[in-house]
Design a protein around this nucleic acid. Sequence first.
DNA 1: CAAAAAAAGGGGGATTTCCCCCTTTTTTTA
DNA 2: TAAAAAAAGGGGGAAATCCCCCTTTTTTTG
Lengths: 210, 210
Amino acid sequence: MNYSVVVVDDHFLLSQAIGGLVQKFDNFDVLYLCKNGKELLDKFEDPKNIPDLVLMDIKMPILNGIETAEKLKKDYPDVKVLALSIEEDEYTILKMLRAGAKGYLMKDTKKDILEKALLEVMLKGQYYTNNVSKILMESIEKNIDTEIKDKELEFIKLACTDMSYKEIANAMFCSYKTVEGYRDSLYKKLGIKNRIGLMLFAIQHNIFTP
Amino acid sequence: MNYSVVVVDDHFLLSQAIGGLVQKFDNFDVLYLCKNGKELLDKFEDPKNIPDLVLMDIKMPILNGIETAEKLKKDYPDVKVLALSIEEDEYTILKMLRAGAKGYLMKDTKKDILEKALLEVMLKGQYYTNNVSKILMESIEKNIDTEIKDKELEFIKLACTDMSYKEIANAMFCSYKTVEGYRDSLYKKLGIKNRIGLMLFAIQHNIFTP
DNA sequence: CAAAAAAAGGGGGATTTCCCCCTTTTTTTA
DNA sequence: TAAAAAAAGGGGGAAATCCCCCTTTTTTTG
């Protein structure tokens, strides 16, 4: 009996391609494809649509990968989730793993690595590439008390631009004072003292890639 | 008759190793090794010490590669200069080429590339690796009127640090107002409006590598 | 060598950033 | 559901940054 897999990705071409690959693997069958998390959860209403493993993008419209993974962890804890994304920053990857993903693959992963990852997740419960393991290790070493909120992450990315805080507030649809709040809280918890320090932090943690 | 080569580098181990490589090449002989530009120019007093080609580091004590190349261009225009350095920024490479170097090689260049470069410089007058050609092309496209001075370059590198301008002035042994002058002139000629913009520029042009 | 250009230094004001400490609203959690 | 925590917003002052315009000294160049 093969393991059943569902691919969730808003880029239909990509999910089709990946579905095609998975279908060819010996121990796996593709059950169906979805365009976002909402569609997936709707499908799950019918128990025969619940797969062994979900291969899911992070950035998706309506219900994104992290939110979907959290719901799956709560309501369908037996379904394994494997994240599949291009170039996310360290904190997003970390959040996806905290949300219950058993591993994280780059979209340009070679097909035998994909097969290996699928198998390991089904057999051993998880699969981490070198990169991801490194991020995990570092996050354990350094960031015990430094969890960065979504809005703060968004702010950091804009702060790596030559925009003033006033302009950033505009872009984030919030008040200037709120933006100052994000900045102050980040400066405090990251132990930095100015915007250049924030930018250096962002580069070092792949939040911003120049 | 083989071409004669002199290697100039303050790291004696390295210049010995490179000298050894060059000696083995079919068309080249090593005349002698030098530790800096001053030593080289002293040697040149005796005409039989003047080689066909000088393979020279940029960062050296007493007389550096750029200054030496300028003197050679003036007093010994027939001697070809090939720069040999690790990870310099775009503007330093450009300055070395303006000073008369016929090409620029990374220190970790493979030995057949080194041989190829030496031959091409002797036969065709120049050798540019892909990287260097790209920098040259870009400098022609964009930076016609933007030449960055030494002190400005030094300032940019420090501005990519979380130091305040006061601290930078201290580090550069000059007044705070002078540093402000460097900044203002850079902002004007690069068309940027704040320190983040300067940092982005520095990263894009390999002046600062995070 | 004289004129021109560049480097170094400065004054002063407008703006932005930094760093506290505070209130109200929303969200979490026990 | 009540208490606690977090998010959002704000006041205000000190410091840093930005942006002019100016003088003196040094260097370059015709």
